[in-house]
Simulated scan of single mutants.
Amino acid sequence: MPLPPRIPLTRAQIEQVVTTFYARVRRDTVIGPVFLNSLSDDAAIWRTHEAKITDFWANAILHERSYSGNPMMVHSGISAIKPEMFTRWLDLFDDTLAGELPDQIAAQWSALAHRIGRGLRMGVEMNIPQSGPPILH
């Protein structure tokens, strides 16, 4: 018997949020250049990326098994990604959720995104070469 969704969403809603979010990302002056550098501005590449991220969220929220990948490795392997960029990423994501979903559902997905974002940020921070004593959080 399949697990119930973690958040009451449909795959179509997840896809709409992802599509809207990445349209905003491409226009953003803080994180847009990092994405455009990694993915280019080719529409087909963006569609593939958005489909993969939709699969990621469908896995995390709906317990689908359509995603395979390692977000930690990907994010920590891109030197242009700075820890402070996760704040902007989450702000844009929260704004997108608020515009696309009812408040309670947006808040639930936001909480999940913030947990994942903290983990990814920590992974990026751990891969920054340190000089001096370690930074403890």
Rank of each mutant, 00 (worst) to 15 (best):
P83W: 03
I78E: 15
R65K: 15
S40T: 13
G69V: 11
V74A: 15
K52V: 10
A12G: 10
L97H: 00
M73R: 14
T54A: 02
M73N: 14
T20Q: 09
S68R: 09
R115V: 09
L36N: 13
S40P: 06
T29I: 05
L92Y: 02
T48F: 09
V34Q: 07
P102S: 12
L136G: 13
A51T: 04
T29W: 03
P5G: 05
K52N: 12
E64A: 05
W57H: 03
R118Q: 11
G132F: 01
R24N: 15
M126V: 07
T29F: 03
I61F: 01
W89E: 10
A44T: 09
E125N: 08
T19G: 12
Q13M: 11
A98V: 05
N70W: 00
H75V: 05
M72G: 04
F21P: 02
Q130D: 12
H137A: 14
I116T: 03
I81S: 01
L97Y: 02
N59E: 09
H49Q: 08
A44G: 09
A44Y: 07
N70R: 06
T48V: 11
Q130S: 12
I31S: 02
L62V: 01
D94T: 05
S131P: 08
D95F: 00
M122P: 06
L136E: 14
M122G: 13
G69T: 11
I81A: 02
T29A: 15
I7N: 00
P8R: 08
W46F: 02
M1V: 11
A51G: 08
R24H: 10
A113F: 01
D94Y: 02
F35H: 05
S79I: 07
D42W: 06
W109E: 03
G69M: 05
E50Y: 00
Q108F: 07
R11T: 04
F56K: 05
H75E: 04
R88L: 10
E50K: 05
A107Y: 00
T10N: 14
M72F: 06
L39G: 02
N59C: 10
R27S: 13
M126L: 09
W109I: 03
G69D: 12
Q130H: 10
R88V: 11
D95L: 08
L3R: 07
P83Q: 03
R11S: 14
I135D: 13
L9Y: 01
D41Q: 15
V30I: 14
T20C: 11
D28C: 12
I31K: 02
T48G: 12
D42G: 06
R115N: 14
S38T: 09
T10Y: 06
K82F: 11
L39Q: 04
Q104W: 12
V18H: 01
M126P: 10
H114M: 04
S131K: 14
A113V: 02
R118W: 01
M85D: 06
L3Y: 11
A23H: 11
K82Q: 13
L9S: 05
F21A: 03
R47E: 13
Q108A: 15
R47G: 11
T48E: 08
W46P: 09
Q16V: 11
L112H: 07
W46Y: 06
I78H: 04
I116H: 00
S79P: 07
A51S: 14
G99S: 12
L36E: 10
I78M: 14
A107Q: 07
I78P: 02
M1R: 14
A107S: 13
Q108L: 15
M85E: 12
I81K: 03
